[in-house]
Design a protein around this nucleic acid. Structure first.
Lengths: 206, 206
DNA sequence: CCTACCGATCGGTAGG
DNA sequence: CCTACCGATCGGTAGG
């Protein structure tokens, strides 16, 4: 019997992600979400309490993923120093799987209501700070450039990655040839490596 | 007599920028914009035709600035090759003057309704393409790294800059010490220079 | 999980 | 630049 209830819940969360990403939370009516999920509006309220409750539930599913994924990535990177490529590719992979996730996250980064900030800071903050410690360690070990600002660099990469994934294919008509989303992501990886890693001997040796 | 009319128009545009940036266009009522500008809603409709008309007028003021600023920047950079620092600092300066502008632009990058895309592509596209040609020339001249993807690099810098300016102070509580907005912008300049410019002889000479 | 209903607000128009 | 009004829709509750 939780089977059917969970099914409805899952459907609502999926459609809410899609509509919140497309139009923004404030411009989406829970009526539209309910209709897309095949239920009536009071039923949605019954499950999530309020529109704000639905918003939090949607974001929680994304935070859940990263609060499980970040420790795994950090642990696997520990054996061999932090792998900037692997981290960025994990970021890209998750958001490429469903581009709506990127648009949703970018919107929440702009809106940033207090409950959302608290949730993200509490659940993901520790892992972000562990990551910045790893960068500092890499600087001391001499594999990373000494003039990197670890905290600023991490935030910059997250902002850039999410930004490109959310909007990369909506602004590329400005240029010719139009850079694909993949080209922009590849360029981000190149830029990140170039700005983070000490140049290898091959490059130093002219 | 256009004096008073322009005054109202200016006030409406300023308040619309602020409210569209804060809540998004879809979540902002023109009633609230009118009240903030000290007029009634039908009066706003009289001036801008519709909510969509207001949206276009707001964005046009931003596009106006850059369709005048980009040619000037390109011309002054022509005497001495493209100056990545000057371009980024001009971007930062304009959006730091009023952070709402950055949030508004980032929201429009996500929403990207067709009229907005057309407006931006028509008015700014040519200058963006001229900029990418300048980067290609720099590659041929040997001052820029050959593995840069000019078009992807330009879009990446715009997305990253606007992203940091719009959201940089809303996510920095994730790290410790919290990187200031300025630190994130400085890091973006460093990253951009490092990834674009060929390493100077000093760096190559170990 | 539903129907029926609440007061409030939405964008826009009529008419002056 | 306004008052007065339109039908439609908003989030949420009552009650079952």
């Amino acid at each position: 019997m939780p089977d059917l209830a969970d099914d409805v819940r899952t459907r609502v969360l999926r459609e809410a992600t899609r509509l919140f990403a497309r139009d923004g939370v404030g411009a989406t009516s829970i009526q539209d979400v309910a209709a897309a999920a095949g239920i009536r509006r009071p039923t949605l309220i019954y499950h999530f309490g309020s529109k704000e409750g639905l918003r939090q539930a949607v974001l929680s599913t994304l935070v859940d993923h990263w609060s499980a994924e970040l420790p795994r990535l950090m642990a696997s990177a520990a054996s061999g120093g932090p792998r900037i490529d692997a981290l960025l590719r994990a970021l890209f992979g998750y958001f490429l799987e469903d581009r709506d996730r990127a648009r949703l996250v970018l919107r929440e980064m702009i809106d940033a209501p207090e409950p959302v900030r608290d949730l993200v800071r509490t659940r993901l903050g520790p892992w972000m700070r562990l990551l910045s410690e790893a960068l500092r360690a890499g600087q001391i070990a001499g594999t990373l450039r000494p003039n990197v600002d670890p905290e600023a660099f991490i935030l910059l990469m997250v902002t850039s990655g999410v930004g490109v994934l959310a909007a990369g294919d909506r602004v590329n008509a400005l240029l010719d040839p139009e850079p694909t989303l993949e080209a922009q992501l590849d360029e981000l990886v190149r830029v990140a490596r170039c700005a983070l890693l000490k140049p290898p001997p091959a490059e130093e040796a002219r």
